[in-house]
């Protein structure tokens, strides 16, 4: 099992706070519309969740791939 950040794209305000907080550069603001998490890079540290002012990020456990 691996922990990763997930979020609701529809609720994202695309402020970029999560992108700045991510120590692994695993988040980008896709086309200025919503935050997109690179699941391979994400380590599920939760810093993005802490930085998100809209509280839309959660850390979930997923089956690790590969």
């Amino acid at each position: 099992m691996k922990k990763i950040a997930t979020l609701s794209r529809n609720a994202c305000v695309s402020c970029g706070c999560c992108e700045t907080a991510c120590p692994k550069n695993a988040i980008e603001i896709y086309n200025g519309i919503y935050a997109k998490v690179d699941q391979d890079r994400c380590i599920g540290c939760g810093l993005c969740k802490k930085a998100c002012p809209a509280d839309i990020i959660s850390i979930k456990e997923v089956d690790s791939i590969g």
């Binding site: 305000v13 695309s14 402020c15 706070c17 086309n31 200025g32 519309i33 930085a51 998100c52 002012p53 809209a54 509280d55």
Partner: peptide, 27 residues
């Protein structure tokens, strides 16, 4: 009262630029 950057959630410029991006990139 809330998170440090709560303003970013309802910042009119942030909302407007997100709308511009949505229109520009057809989301």
């Amino acid at each position: 009262l809330f998170r440090p950057r709560t303003w970013c959630v309802y910042c009119p410029m942030g909302t407007m630029t997100q709308l511009v991006c949505k229109a520009k990139y057809k989301e």
